[in-house]
Amino acid sequence: MSNVLVNEKDIVVPGETLAEGMDNLPGEGTYRQGEKILAGRLGLAHIDGRAVKLIPLSGKYNPKRGDTIICKVTDINFSGWRVDTNSAYSAMLSMKDATSDYIQKGADLTQYYSLGEYMVASIVNVTSQKLIDVTMKGPGLHKLKGGRMLEVSPYKVPRIIGKQGSMVSMIKTATNCRIIVGQNGLVWIQGEPDKELLVVRAIKKIEEDSHLSGLTENIKKFLEAESGVKLGE
């Protein structure tokens, strides 16, 4: 007889028993020990049909293929650029993925991307040894000039973006700033200096209140009060 011992959205700690019996399947973040399914990390319980899963609440960014991330050039070598991904591993941006221009052998690569510059890139591949390849070829991938960078928990990124980008476009409308949210938890903001600071405060507020219900409504009120812009539906 199957027996799930936790409720949906319960917070569980590593080693906590989630379900007993063989009728359920251990999903992401869980493991089976004999007849039991146990939690393999700190997270929110999520029951998906027969599978019991855990939604992570905290942790570093884990690079995945297809993610759009914001990264920073840390080194330049013969074949391309090494970029920091805000995770435990750095990524490689090869010359052919960086630009469609013809680059002469031995050319100065800093004219494309120089040390310390930020860019929006997409992850092409991640190997088992966590070697990462990124590309600049794709819609919306470009170098970031000016603005400011903000670091948030990668697990709060979906909250900051909102349903179909509703949250971030609301902030954009209220502050008239350009905002790019990378899946790796880096957020780039560009606009009027005081508006940039307002965006920072709004995003910090989303991060703190992300677990409370009525988040969109609260942030809307906050932005209307702070920016004086009336936000429609």
Binding site: L42, H211, G214, L215
Partner: peptide, 20 residues
């Protein structure tokens, strides 16, 4: 006690209204 301390970091964790 450890378990309680870990869970207390996330007070009244409700479903939220915008799950992606």
């Amino acid at each position: 006690i450890q378990k309680k301390a870990l869970k207390d970091k996330y007070p009244k964790h409700s479903a939220g209204d915008n799950n992606e």
